[in-house]
């Protein structure tokens, strides 16, 4: 079990292959869900590097998804840039913002870092809302899709794209966490002063992990914008950031597969609750699901603070 859990590249390749086959048989509703899971998983993999391995916290990760999405969308709509380059630009933009902000927020730890990243997420969302050039509160419509030659991506292609990115993302992150670099992140998270006293530039490491998590989020955002063709500030609000935390916690913070599992569970659970709740409790709106998501988050933290994957896939220890 353990060897399987750390053989990141082969397992990721198998998953991508299975999904590439699956999308030809699934109804489009489920293909859409698969895409969404892939996009969220990508963000959560990056978040787990920052929170689980480097031991930091971000309650504003949705903002970097938004930056990636808006960058790609603006370049595509206003400059007719292909979303392929838009995704790269989105990642770069998110990375630059994270880099600049790291000098402010990464001076803080734990509770205060959580508050600062939360604040950051909201400030960035306000900018999305108030900046007319990027559509203000009404958002951006008609975002061009990805294309290969004359083939414009459809639902299936987006699902495959999202999961190829998850595969690449997990391969890269897997290499990182199994390298001495990844262990240095763990050292910083476990005993920052002890690591510094040996000469580890912990500030640099935490900054790099933060920027890397923003790159994952930025790419995910660009794919999100093109596959849904429409974005507005509410798509990247505080609640999405909370959802990423939920995915991280459910899967297990210090686990890369946990990120994927967490994303799948949260998305699936959201769908199930949306269908089941009105049947069981007539009159309850589908949005009532957030009650259960909150309860699950609390229950997970009390009962299994290291996440579902802690039993078989925690890297680093053992």
């Amino acid at each position: 079990m353990r060897r399987l859990s750390t053989a990141y590249a082969p397992v990721a390749a198998v998953i991508v292959a299975v999904i590439a086959v699956l999308v030809w048989f699934l109804p489009s509703y489920y293909t859409g869900l698969l895409t969404l899971i892939g996009i969220y998983a990508l963000v959560t993999i990056g978040l787990n590097l920052f929170m689980g391995y480097a031991g930091q916290v971000s309650l504003g990760q949705a903002a970097f998804v938004g930056i990636g999405a808006y960058t790609s969308a603006v370049l595509a709509v206003k400059l007719h840039l292909t979303p392929w380059l838009g995704a790269v630009a989105g990642a770069v933009a998110a990375a630059l913002v994270a880099f600049a902000l790291s000098f402010i927020v990464l001076r803080l730890r734990e509770n205060l870092l959580a508050l600062a990243t939360l604040a950051l997420g909201i400030v960035i969302n306000v900018v999305f809302n108030e900046w007319d050039f990027i559509g203000g509160s009404s958002g951006f419509k008609g975002i061009p899709g990805f294309a290969l030659g004359s083939f414009v991506f459809d639902q299936r292609a987006y699902a495959i794209l999202a999961w190829v990115l998850v595969g690449v993302g997990i391969w890269f992150a897997g290499n990182v966490v199994q390298s001495t670099y990844g262990r240095a992140l763990i050292a910083v998270s476990a005993g920052e002063l002890g690591a510094q006293a040996l000469g580890v530039n912990s500030e640099g490491l935490r900054r790099q992990a933060f920027v890397l998590s923003a790159v994952y989020a930025g790419i995910a955002g660009a794919v999100y914008a093109s596959s849904f063709t429409y974005i507005d500030p509410t798509s990247f609000g505080f609640l999405l950031s909370v959802n990423f935390v939920l995915m991280s916690v459910i899967g297990g913070l210090r686990s890369l597969w946990g990120a994927v599992i967490g994303a799948a569970i949260v998305v699936a659970l959201g769908q199930i609750l949306q269908t089941v709740i009105p049947l069981v409790l007539p009159g309850a709106r589908g949005d009532f699901q957030s009650f259960f998501l909150g309860v699950i988050l609390v229950a997970m933290l009390i009962l299994m603070p290291r996440g579902l994957t802690s039993r078989f896939a925690s890297d680093g220890a053992a």
């Binding site: 002890g194 210090r254 680093g316 220890a317 053992a318």
Partner: peptide, 8 residues
């Protein structure tokens, strides 16, 4: 002692 829990 400051230990790096999570590492061997």
């Amino acid at each position: 002692p400051v230990m790096f829990w999570g590492l061997t």
